[in-house]
Amino acid sequence: MIVRTHELVKVYETGGETVHALDGVSIGVSQGQFVAIMGASGSGKSTFMNMIGCLDVPTSGSIEIAGRDVAGLSRDELAEVRNRQLGFVFQQFNLLKRTSATQNVALPLIYAGVSVSERRARAEAQLADVGLGDRLQNMPNQLSGGQQQRVAIARALVTRPSILLADEPTGALDSKTSVEVMKILQGLSEKGISIILVTHEDDIAAYAERRIDFRDGRVIADEPVRNRR
């Protein structure tokens, strides 16, 4: 199991009201698995994703990433786990403005302590892998939405993480481009990278091999995807 959670609980206090965003979630994801997490808004799927992504800390329960319990780690230790083990793809791409595709992709390598020349070489190779070898010096505003998301995928992969976390990666894309992006993710999964995808679209979830449904902070269904695309 590359990711394992046990009785994960996250409680928020908002306006004197206690919200159980996660209410005892225990899930295991094996190496190379492509998992889609479904659910309505407020179901807890994003909160779960943030916990796995080490961006937020649980109220109780444990999370293991690549065999390491991350629940009790310090801020900087969590930053290291994010840098080495995890790659993020967001709905809004989150590329740095006025920064070339190569430099955007190289960003995680800065924090990994990689030398300037190696950073550049690895970023360029990663961009070539996602089919953007001819767009290395383009700024984000010179790229289409699909191209920007591919830059973001290259950035997520450049530190060679074992897990890719994709939060509504096709939410800002048209259906044709969405297919392209999902095909890239499927390819990565075949290469052994575990992918956890958050979406509310059945069409998109159909690219995964396993589908987990959330409601009110609990898992209500966990089954293999039939009619996989």
Binding site: D76, A79, R82, R84, F88
Partner: peptide
Amino acid sequence: GLRMAVGARTRD
């Protein structure tokens, strides 16, 4: 937030 997500530590 993005820099932190890709691995920036507090001191970075």
